[in-house]
């Protein structure tokens, strides 16, 4: 109960800071929309309608937007040594991980809610046949992506490594997630298919493994 209260306190702190500065969300939304629009224009709209191209373009927006979320939410802790103050609180460092994970998920969910309609307009996605399937696939995929992104954003914040390295590490690690997710979304868009259990299993397994490992390892990577 105490840990849950601490997670909510830290999540509230991050969301309050974001509500006041609007730094992360504004940038992430602009970037996401730009990616979808530019790729739509580059692929001349109709050529990418439905299918793999359309889902891949959505994923490009999620990947880059997500990487920016990870960096921005952790950057709050690096100004003025705030991270050291947080690490002095009497709580497991996994609490910090889970609160950052939730903050990232809130931002990424907002990104998905905004750019999906843009994709519908530009690429003609048909979500009406299986909206819940679409939401389940995207939701489960973003959880896994946020799990590794939050871990590595902590590592980057604690080291002298540059922020650009985050994407270099996180993108390849997300590959199984992206492949399984794009296959599932292709089916959803083209045929309104029910979810393929084996592909969904890959995403859920990815989520469980990386959430557990990241929660445990975060203790070791985070340093003031």
């Amino acid at each position: 109960m105490i840990a849950l209260r601490q997670i909510l306190l830290l999540l509230g702190k991050d969301l309050r800071i974001e509500a006041r500065t609007r730094q992360a969300l504004a940038l992430v939304l602009v970037l996401g929309i730009l990616i979808v629009v530019v790729l739509a224009l580059g692929l001349q709209g109709g050529n990418a309608r439905g299918g793999l191209s359309a889902t891949a373009i959505l994923w490009v927006a999620y990947l880059f937007g997500g990487a920016m979320c990870f960096e921005k939410t952790m950057a709050v802790e690096t100004h003025d040594g705030a991270l050291a103050g947080l690490l002095m609180a009497p709580m497991d460092r996994g609490v910090i991980y889970l609160s950052k994970l939730l903050a990232n998920l809130v931002l990424m969910a907002t990104l998905a809610i905004v750019i999906t309609p843009v994709g519908v307009v530009l690429f003609g996605f048909d979500l009406s046949r299986a909206p819940l399937a679409f939401a389940s696939v995207v939701g489960a995929s973003l959880i896994g992506y946020a799990a590794i992104g939050t871990l590595f954003s902590g590592l980057v914040a604690s080291s002298r490594l540059s922020g650009g390295l985050l994407a270099v590490v996180v993108f390849p690690l997300s590959l199984p997630l992206v492949i399984a997710s794009t296959q599932l979304l292709k089916g959803v868009f083209e045929h309104g298919n029910a979810l393929d259990a084996s592909a969904m299993g890959v995403i859920v397994a990815f989520d469980v493994i990386f959430l557990t490992v990241s929660w445990i390892v975060f203790e070791l990577v985070i340093e003031p």
Partner: peptide, 13 residues
């Protein structure tokens, strides 16, 4: 309690 070299405060709070 820790007072650090930096303020360790959140500037937007």
């Amino acid at each position: 309690g820790l007072v650090g070299h930096e303020t360790m405060l959140y500037r937007d709070l």
